[in-house]
């Protein structure tokens, strides 16, 4: 554990809490892609199966349980509790276009050809593209509430901090997880355009912003 990794995890937690509290307080999930949230719940589910097989640390276990619980709570709020506000007409990204290649790749490129490892790899690859329905929705509607942008900012920050963490771990302990690093870098690139717009538009007071 290093400071970059911890800050990354905290940033991830903040992102998830921002989204959950936004939906809860406004009693609305307008502008939120339910599909992206289902994909994230699937990411956590398939990655954290090792909760049952290997213990790493109390921190690790607690965070996994928290992420799982929060992601399922978010999906519940969107599709059950506040489903009347769910903007399904604009949440039209075809997730099969993500799932099919991701499933295929996880069978081709993994650390060992076992169900657990293939599911772990699937979760890593899926996480890198799971935000695409959300970004697609923002592009389609032309704008997002500033709170949604804060959510995306912290999600992107989490990814950027993980890259710094990997650089740190590579130099201090020789750690290099190729699958995680390559897909993590790809994932972070998706946020670059958003980051630029976030800084130039949201932080300079316009509140709302649109993606080109």
């Amino acid at each position: 554990m290093n400071i970059f990794r911890l800050a990354g995890d905290m940033s991830h937690l903040v992102a998830i809490l921002i989204l959950l509290l936004k939906i809860w307080r406004s009693r609305s999930c307008a502008g939120i892609s339910g599909k992206s949230q289902v994909l994230f719940a699937l990411v956590f589910t398939t990655r954290y199966l090792d909760l049952f097989t290997s213990f790493i640390s109390a921190y690790n276990t607690v965070m996994k349980v928290v992420f799982l619980a929060l992601s399922y709570a978010t999906v519940y709020l969107i599709y059950m509790r506040f489903r009347n506000s769910y903007d399904s007409e604009n949440d039209t990204f075809r997730v099969e276009f993500l799932l099919v290649p991701v499933i295929g790749l996880s069978f081709l490129e993994n650390y060992s050809f076992t169900p657990m490892e293939i599911l772990w790899t699937f979760s890593i690859f899926l996480e890198s593209v799971a935000i695409m329905p959300q970004l697609f929705m923002i592009t389609k509607t032309g704008e997002a509430e500033s709170i949604t942008n804060h959510y995306l900012f912290f999600l992107g920050l989490y990814r950027a901090l993980y890259i710094v963490n990997w650089v740190w771990r590579y130099h201090t302990e020789g750690f290099f997880d190729q699958i995680a690093v390559v897909s993590g870098v790809v994932q972070t690139i998706f946020y670059c355009d958003f980051f630029y717009l976030y800084v130039t538009r949201v932080l300079r007071g316009r509140g709302k912003m649109s993606l080109p």
């Binding site: 650390y111 490892e117 997880d177």
Partner: peptide, 10 residues
């Protein structure tokens, strides 16, 4: 990479 059994990152 032989970290196949222990993924210690979240």
């Amino acid at each position: 990479a032989d970290e196949a059994s222990a993924h210690d990152e979240l």
